[in-house]
């Protein structure tokens, strides 16, 4: 089976600074890939390259290619709107819109032209169920999403992402602003979602990487030092720097 995402010789610059250097990585379909590494090593920049969220930064430049299902997402014919429908994103800090719970989940559907009330209602319920939030919010769908707890807000953001039926979900440290119980819930959710979605998760928490991911890539100073099966990378890393990082000698 071909890879869902293939990144070839990717270099990213913000103005003069060279943020990502010669990145080569293949992302498997319907599996969780974790990106680990110390702060400022380019993990977030990398993940934001995969749905072209860096485009809005005026100094952003890149060379190399990012293939999604064998098509380069940076080709001029690519519609960014379609790309972001296929590649959803969950952010570090839960960022529900200041709208009702229902409208948050329905948002993506509505902007893509779905206005049928029944379709929306079904889709919202389905997405909230998939994000393991339905039972907690089913009686207050008209309440503002900002009244939910942080963990609930993050699951709402996942529901919102799922609602537009992406193939890939990017998660940029989705648990870093959450308490341990909410973190567990999100991790359980990731386990559930990995059968249907290709998930790429940035995390600072190495235990989290071992718990949720099948593959792991270790970033350092804008390069991928090592990548491979999570079990192998954490037990017998090939590179000394990987070993130093996962044993907590730096970072």
């Amino acid at each position: 089976m071909p890879y869902r995402i293939e990144v070839q010789d990717l270099n990213v610059y913000f103005g003069e600074s060279h943020i990502l250097k010669d990145i080569n990585i293949n992302i498997n379909n319907n599996m969780v890939t974790a990106l680990i590494g110390p702060s400022g090593c380019g993990k977030s920049t990398f993940i934001r390259t995969l749905n072209r969220m860096n485009d809005s930064i005026s100094t952003f430049k890149k060379d190399g290619s990012v293939l999604l299902d064998e098509d380069d997402i940076y080709e001029s014919k690519v519609d960014v709107v379609e790309l972001r429908k296929k590649v959803g994103m969950v952010f570090q800090k839960p960022n529900p819109f200041p709208k009702s719970i229902f409208d948050n989940v329905a948002y993506g559907l509505r902007i893509h032209g779905e206005n049928d009330k029944d379709v929306l209602a079904n889709k919202v319920e389905e997405s909230l169920r998939a994000a393991a939030l339905w039972d907690e919010v089913k009686d207050k769908l008209e309440m503002s999403a900002l009244g939910l707890s942080g963990g609930q807000q993050q699951r709402l953001c996942i529901a919102r992402t799922i609602a537009v039926e992406p193939e890939v979900i990017l998660m940029d440290e989705p648990c870093s602003a959450l308490d341990p119980i909410s973190t567990t819930k999100i991790e359980d959710l990731i386990h559930k979602l990995k059968n249907d979605y290709t998930i790429i998760i940035v995390t600072h928490n190495m235990q989290q990487a071992t718990r949720v991911s099948k593959y792991t890539a270790f970033f350092l100073n804008g390069e991928i030092v090592e990548s491979g099966l999570t079990d192998k990378l954490f037990i017998e890393p090939e590179d000394k720097r990987t070993e130093d990082y996962i044993t907590g000698r730096f970072g």
């Binding site: 969220m53 960022n95 200041p98 993506g108 902007i111």
Partner: peptide, 12 residues
């Protein structure tokens, strides 16, 4: 974060 959340869902 609101703007980014919206753009990431494919809104223009």
């Amino acid at each position: 974060s609101y703007t980014e959340g919206s753009l990431a869902l494919g809104a223009n």
